[in-house]
Amino acid sequence: MLFYKIGLNINLMKSEGTLLKLNSSRESVYQDLARIMEYETLDFQDYSEELVMIVDGNGYFNKNYLVFQIVTQYGDTIELAGSIIFAKNIETEDSTDIGPISEEEILILRDKLNIKLIGITRGI
């Protein structure tokens, strides 16, 4: 599965987008994301009808996480702490799951994404 991640480039000390590839099944993708990203919990925020942003559920409580301000496709301005993973919303019979995002969708997202780095967390 392919995802798009916005996080911190340690060498340049600035935000950067990268591809995140996982060999996960639909049943294990949540656990695999949490393990790879070292998140205790996952938090989900819709970016658009088609895309969802996934962040560390404890992002604001951690030290030295970047804080991003993002304008969603709905026109809402939100703030998220930590690396942001973009995935596809997959409607199922019972709920909504996450799925891979295509390279074409990533290119479109990068062109339209209204995101600013606004700070860094101090932790608790």
Rank of each mutant, 00 (worst) to 15 (best):
M1I: 13
F3S: 10
Y4D: 15
G7Y: 07
L8Q: 10
L8A: 06
L8K: 15
L12S: 13
K14A: 05
K14D: 10
S15C: 02
E16T: 06
G17Q: 07
T18E: 06
T18D: 04
L19E: 15
L20I: 11
L20P: 09
L20V: 12
L20G: 05
K21N: 11
L22D: 10
L22E: 11
N23M: 00
N23D: 06
N23E: 04
S24N: 00
S25M: 10
E27I: 13
V29N: 06
Y30R: 04
Q31R: 12
D32M: 04
L33I: 15
R35F: 05
E38C: 04
E40T: 14
E40R: 12
T41A: 08
T41Q: 07
T41F: 03
D43C: 04
F44K: 02
Q45C: 02
Q45G: 00
Y47A: 00
S48D: 02
E50D: 12
E50W: 00
L51N: 00
I54F: 01
V55A: 10
V55S: 13
V55M: 10
G57I: 07
N58L: 12
F61C: 02
F61G: 05
K63M: 05
N64S: 13
N64C: 03
L66W: 04
F68K: 10
Q69D: 10
Q69E: 15
Q69K: 14
I70Q: 13
I70Y: 09
I70S: 14
V71L: 09
V71I: 15
D76C: 03
D76Q: 14
D76V: 01
T77Y: 00
T77A: 11
T77Q: 04
T77E: 11
E79V: 00
E79R: 10
L80S: 11
S83G: 15
I85H: 05
A87M: 13
A87S: 15
K88I: 08
K88H: 12
N89V: 15
N89Q: 12
E91W: 05
T92R: 02
E93Q: 09
E93K: 07
D94K: 06
S95H: 07
D97F: 10
G99I: 13
P100L: 01
P100V: 03
S102D: 09
I106M: 15
I108R: 12
I108M: 08
D111Y: 06
D111A: 14
L113M: 02
N114W: 01
I115L: 09
K116F: 03
K116D: 12
L117I: 07
L117E: 14
L117N: 13
G119D: 09
I120S: 06
I120K: 08
I120F: 03
T121F: 02
R122K: 04
R122Y: 01
R122W: 01
G123V: 09
G123K: 09
